[in-house]
């Protein structure tokens, strides 16, 4: 590792921090109850747009894991998401009409809020359609995990994004308010992931799953990244580099063992493939706020609006975290 590289990454980190500082002006506080946050609280950060129908289950799920406070950036929702969130006791809301894409897909906004409110806290940064699963999550609250990580001097916790999908056309079964999305999207690909190492940032780059299989069979390098580091004990100098896929300083990305052992890890069950997505993707194409500008992504969204079936006879039906651990999609590591 040469000094120049280290220095360049440091500059990069500073640049993103300044950028976050600049982008904070785009955020308007709608409801700020962060004074309620206690020193030991585990926080959740999320950016969303028009996700009203998902919110009840999302909040319920994470409250049951033991998240104490939610910090939400609402990117110009028009479906009542903001109003819904304002009514919640444990939710602080910021709103913005600015471009999601130009805030590096919300990363800048979150970097700012993290810097302001998360220092010293364990923080979970997810999307509204991502559901965090970790070893023993059915019997131990998230605080058990973070206490253990603290005791082990571990600062960050990795989770792979696991795309879940229904059997049959994606939009065939409509998702209802407050429903567990995995009653519908209960299937996943158990073993078709491609992993390589990103030497620059030290993280693993994982692609594959149903999205690669169905939408990018000819251009697998374009398939979306599935590696994430959603749970971090935040410090002032930390910053998310690209969504939650990687962080700086790069030591936070070493959530894997390279000498043959297994570190503890989890999964983010991704409840993207529901009828809501098919409806939304048309709108997204219009807004071009996602990675949608490239040709491949146009094809991707077009395919989605055709309501495809992602299920195949080798799909696995989700049961619980133990199943994922046996399949090798996550690991208990030395947490027993």
């Amino acid at each position: 590792m040469n000094g120049l590289k280290i220095y360049r990454r440091r500059l990069q980190r500073k640049r993103w921090q300044i950028r976050a500082l600049r982008k904070r002006r785009e955020l308007t506080s709608v409801r700020n109850v962060t004074a309620k946050i206690r020193p030991d609280d585990v926080l959740l950060f999320v950016t969303l747009r028009n996700e009203r129908i998902r919110l009840p289950y999302f909040l319920k799920y994470y409250r049951s894991l033991g998240i104490n406070h939610f910090l939400v950036v609402d990117n110009a929702s028009t479906d009542g998401s903001r109003e819904y969130l304002e009514d919640q006791d444990d939710v602080s809301v910021w709103s913005t009409d600015a471009s999601y894409k130009r805030a590096r897909f919300g990363t800048d906004w979150l970097n700012w809020l993290l810097r302001k409110y998360a220092i010293g806290h364990w923080t979970l940064v997810v999307d509204v359609d991502e559901f965090f699963v970790y070893p023993f999550c059915d019997t131990r609250p998230i605080r058990a995990l973070t206490d253990w990580l603290d005791a082990s001097s571990i600062r960050s916790f990795g989770a792979m994004l696991l795309d879940m999908y229904p059997k049959g056309p994606v939009a065939a079964q409509p998702y209802g308010d407050g429903q567990n999305p995995f009653e519908i999207a209960s299937w996943f690909d158990s073993g078709n992931y491609q992993i390589s190492r990103n030497e620059d940032y030290g993280n693993l780059w994982i692609q594959g799953g149903p999205r690669s299989r169905v939408f990018f069979p000819d251009t697998p390098e374009r398939a979306p990244a599935l590696n994430k580091v959603p749970l971090v004990k935040w410090q002032r100098k930390y910053t998310f580099a690209s969504s939650t896929h990687m962080l700086l300083p790069r030591g936070l990305n070493f959530v894997f063992d390279e000498w043959g052992g297994e570190k503890v890890s989890g999964c983010l069950l991704h409840a993207k493939f529901l009828n809501t997505f098919v409806e939304k993707s048309a709108e997204e194409m219009e807004r071009k706020q996602h990675f949608a500008s490239s040709q491949e992504y146009k094809a991707y969204y077009e395919k989605i609006s055709e309501n495809p079936d992602l299920w195949c006879k080798w799909s696995e039906k989700y049961i619980n975290w133990r199943q994922l651990e046996i399949l090798g999609l996550m690991s208990k590591g030395n947490w027993a």
Binding site: G158, I195, F256, D257, E258, G260, E262, S331
Partner: peptide, 26 residues
């Protein structure tokens, strides 16, 4: 078993928290 999993891991498994360098796959 937990310690073994952490130090030796499951042979032949490559995943997001076990990605051995070449020569250390066990």
């Amino acid at each position: 078993k937990a310690v073994e999993r952490r130090t030796t891991g499951r042979a032949g498994l490559y995943m997001h928290s076990r990605f051995p360098q070449e020569g250390f796959e066990k």
